[in-house]
Design a protein around this nucleic acid. Sequence first.
DNA 1: TCGTTAAGCGTGCGGTGTACGCCTACGACG
DNA 2: CGTCGTAGGCGTACACCGCACGCTTAACGA
Lengths: 199, 199
Amino acid sequence: MPRPKSLTPEALAAAALAVVDRDGLPALSMRAVATELGMGTMSLYRYVREKTELEALVVDLILSTVDTQPPEAPWREQIAVLVRRVRDAVAAHPHAIVLTMTHRHRSPALGRWSESVLEVLAANGFTGARRVVALRALLSYLIGAVQLEHLGPLTGTGTAAMAANAEFPLLAETARAARSVDDGFQRGLEVVLRGMSEE
Amino acid sequence: MPRPKSLTPEALAAAALAVVDRDGLPALSMRAVATELGMGTMSLYRYVREKTELEALVVDLILSTVDTQPPEAPWREQIAVLVRRVRDAVAAHPHAIVLTMTHRHRSPALGRWSESVLEVLAANGFTGARRVVALRALLSYLIGAVQLEHLGPLTGTGTAAMAANAEFPLLAETARAARSVDDGFQRGLEVVLRGMSEE
DNA sequence: TCGTTAAGCGTGCGGTGTACGCCTACGACG
DNA sequence: CGTCGTAGGCGTACACCGCACGCTTAACGA
């Protein structure tokens, strides 16, 4: 048929991601992406029905970089590695984190990842409701911890003011101590893994 | 002094929240809030420097409804109740959840809540890094689980399609099983509490 | 009563997403 | 090789957004 598309969805997503990485999330407009690609704004709508669909494409591009193959290791370490890979992939594009969180459930890449985690769980005695609870706990921790790392409150600008406030002595002390805790993400993940193992 | 303000910040936030609850998050515009209050659009800027500040006000209004007094109970149940109260307050305004997550770190109400949780932890042997890790794990789980409940992927429309896909047999089975698991939030929370206790 | 001060708001600007319809490059076919 | 149908590309336009600016006006202290 006539006039083949000149863009793959990946190329479109890559252009959008480049805009976000360079100029921040508010700069992600249809016009900006079109300019990035050297096309007219409305041309993008040949590839995407609305802007949110473009955003979902960006998210899937980010998440598709994670290797879903579990490493050779004890099962808990297998899961820890898989979780950390997603954390790292998301953290590689800090301006896009809000996007990643709001569109993650439409990403086939995250679906493949979940399937991989479930395989590890299934191979190690997790069945039925217990497996459901385990995946939910892992996903919840992952999603929450990523946002915590990048939007406070233990390390945010907004909380800095609150933590300095004498009204919150424990919060202030905890925020101070948090800065010297190495890899809090990993230690929190171990909490979840330990809790899962003993259900 | 002349001409006292006719609005409290709470009244402003309440009007904005009414708009969001009634018409959804995209309908939250300065013009809509002004109309809700029967004022001119620009009048709002006497109370707020920019729109995000109004959003933060809404979030704090939502979170200020949670009782931060721990109940009489064993300490793990105390924490479970505190966490569940935040979950319920947030879930009461589903259209505002994205807002709540992005502005939570600027909410004094969540600061008071954190302080309260830390008091329970401190009174039960949690100190130093261990207390930091415990709070982070709880907050991460809370934040992530709330989003999981309201944006899939175990119960979302987007994932329904993915779960139906034969490419993801375990995910499909898990999504099916998830629907019959009573109070997955509570069971996931118990995973975290158990993991915390044994660090 | 009057002056001062801040509340309230009308106008306008630069930006957004996207509906609509035209133009045109291309691949298939006679 | 010409021609035609199709779908890619895009220019224009519209409704809406956040908000800068400066005027009008209500309420208090003196």
